[in-house]
Design a protein around this nucleic acid. Structure first.
Lengths: 156, 156
DNA sequence: ATTTTACTTAAAGTCAACTTCAAGTCTTGC
DNA sequence: GCAAGACTTGAAGTTGACTTTAAGTAAAAT
C-alpha cells in the first residue's frame, strides 16, 4: 500500500474493505461530493487515509438519520485550510443531538398513546390521538423532513 | 352520499377527502389489497364507511414504521366473518409496542454514545462506539427491517 | 341535452441511495 | 510479457409508496 514515494494511498478496493462500504458506494459518494479521490497515472482512484474518517462520519450520520445531502452540507463546514481536528468532527455531530431528542420524544409520545388506546380499547377515528396525529400540533408547514431508515446501518 | 336504497357509500373523492389520503393512494391501496371497494353500475369505486377505519389504521401503522406488506398481513388477521370490534383493532396494534420500544431503545443508546463522544472529543475510528456500531451486537442475520420514514406521516 | 366535474385504466415517472451491467482499461504476480 | 484480477465509465436497474399522465367514460349540474 505504501507507494514508492512514501505516500500511503488506497485503491478503491482497499478503501471499501477498510471502511465497510461497497466500492460502488464509494464511487457514488465521490460523485455526490462527499469524499475526494486523486487519480493514478492510469486513471484509477487513490484515496488518502483520511477518507476513512469521513466515511465513518458519513456512516454515523446516516445512522442518526441524515440524508446524504445534509451530510455533504455538514462536511462542507469542515475547515479546508487544515486537517480537521477531533473537535471539528465533534462539533459537527453536536448538531445531531436535537434530532435524536426530537425523534425519541416523538416515538415515546406515540408509544404512550398506543398504550392508552390499547388500555381503553378505543382506537376511535374521532377521539384517538394515535389515529389523529394532527390533533396536537398541526400547522408547521413542510419543515425539514428526515429519515430514520435502513436497518442495515444500525447497531442492533 | 346516501344512495336511494339507504346504503351509505362514498366515491373515491369523498373517501380521499375524509381520510386525508390522495385518491391515487386509495387506488394504490386497493390494488395492494389493503382496502376494498365495490363498483357502481358504471364501474366507479364505491367505498363503505368502514374503509375510513382501515385507512386510519393504515396511517397509524405507517407512523409506527410498518411497511404496506406488513400492514396488509396484519389486516388479514381481522375476522372476515363479522365486523371487526374495537378489541380486534386494538389487538393488532398491540404488536407495535415491541417495535416502538426497540426503536426508542436504539435511538437512546445512540444518543448516549453521542453525548459521550462529544464529551471526550474522541470520535475515533477505532474506539468510538458511535462510529463502530457493530462493537456491541453484531450477528443477527438480516432479520426484519423496517423503516421510520416520511415526516409527513408524523404528529410533529 | 349538454357541459362540467369526477372518475376509469395502464403505464410511466419520482425519490434516495445505491447496485448491477457491459464493455473496456490498468496493475499485479508469475 | 501476459493472464488474472482490479479497476474505469455511463447507463440502467432496484425498492417502496406512491404520483403523474394520457386518453377515455360516468355522473352531476344546468
Amino acid at each position: 500500500m505504501d507507494t514508492i514515494d512514501g505516500t500511503d494511498s488506497m485503491t478503491i478496493g482497499e478503501a471499501a474493505e477498510r471502511s465497510g462500504n461497497a466500492a460502488s458506494a464509494l464511487r457514488y459518494y465521490e460523485q455526490q461530493g462527499l469524499i475526494h479521490a486523486s487519480r493514478s497515472s492510469g486513471g484509477q482512484r487513490r484515496f488518502e487515509r483520511d477518507v476513512l474518517r469521513r466515511l465513518a462520519f458519513i456512516g454515523a450520520a446516516q445512522r442518526v438519520g441524515l440524508e446524504l445531502g445534509e451530510i455533504r452540507a455538514a462536511l462542507e463546514q469542515l475547515p479546508d485550510s487544515r486537517t480537521p481536528t477531533r473537535r471539528d468532527w465533534a462539533k459537527l455531530s453536536t448538531a445531531w443531538r436535537p434530532r435524536l431528542d426530537e425523534e425519541i420524544a416523538y416515538l415515546t409520545r406515540l408509544r404512550n398513546q398506543l398504550t392508552e388506546c390499547i388500555g381503553c380499547g378505543c382506537l376511535s377515528l374521532k377521539t384517538c390521538a394515535l389515529y389523529n396525529p394532527d390533533d396536537e400540533a398541526a400547522e408547521r408547514g413542510e419543515g425539514p423532513r428526515f429519515l430514520l431508515d435502513d436497518r442495515s446501518k444500525r447497531a442492533n
